[in-house]
Amino acid sequence: MKPPPFDYHAPRDLGSALSALAEAGTDGKVLAGGQSLIPMLNMRLAAPGHLIDINRLAGLDTVTAGPDGVRVGALARHSRVERSAEVAAAQPLLRQALRQVAHPVIRNRGTVVGSLVHADPAAELPAVLALLGGSVRLARAGERERDVAAGEFFTGPLESAAEPGDLAVSAFFPASPPRSGTAFRELARRHGDYALAGVAAVVSLGEAGEVVRARVACIGVGAVPIVVDVTSAGRPGDWAAAARAVQDRVEPEDDIHATAGYRRHLVGVLAERALGEAAREAADA
């Protein structure tokens, strides 16, 4: 469990980071919090020739929360975003999700943006970005920065639109409209493990308390977060039909921890619970 040889780069500014990445091409990897990449290196599941450590880059650790939403820089750690009162006020789903990401020590190192690029199908944050319709900002040597919408960003299990040579510099999580509520429900075998299945929900209510918009994003039951709009099936106080609609859309698989059948069942239960909780929160908002 020692990594194969690689060249280590520790650039101090964005420009040199991007040129190092450009030079390395497909043989390069960005090292952020290292909580996913280092184990993969040690198990020799990844063998990049060049590691570009971005931890010394200035200006990438900013987190700005405003009425539109939250922009998270590439070096903002999970724990910082989780604990920020401004973030929680602007988009409470981030904190609700982050509390279920791994353990405190891992959240102290792991980054929100790294988690998005890593694109684990059971990870929470990709679902949050997908559900909220957020985006990831990519930088590349000699090109203008570009924003990729969540819908296009997650392309497969452990695959994202960030290509070799790209550095994800930040991600944007939009705020929800007024009278909205959010919730994140999941079931993991042990505290802090990747979930067997999980559901993030946003519900927006109208003046009369009617459901204006209800959407969920499911994790652990497909190659990428599966977003389902259940506005038409949802009624405040009764989300059973909506949960069934969600169950029909997911594509779970068997693995050593749970069967596909159980995961499908679980997604229904979690969707009903998450939607109910989000709706209650929306009613209180």
Partner: peptide, 15 residues
């Protein structure tokens, strides 16, 4: 198939 602490679920203190 589960020769790691990721997939061999030794309980944490929380369990």
């Amino acid at each position: 198939l589960n020769a790691s602490f990721m997939d061999f679920l030794m309980p944490y203190a929380t369990e």
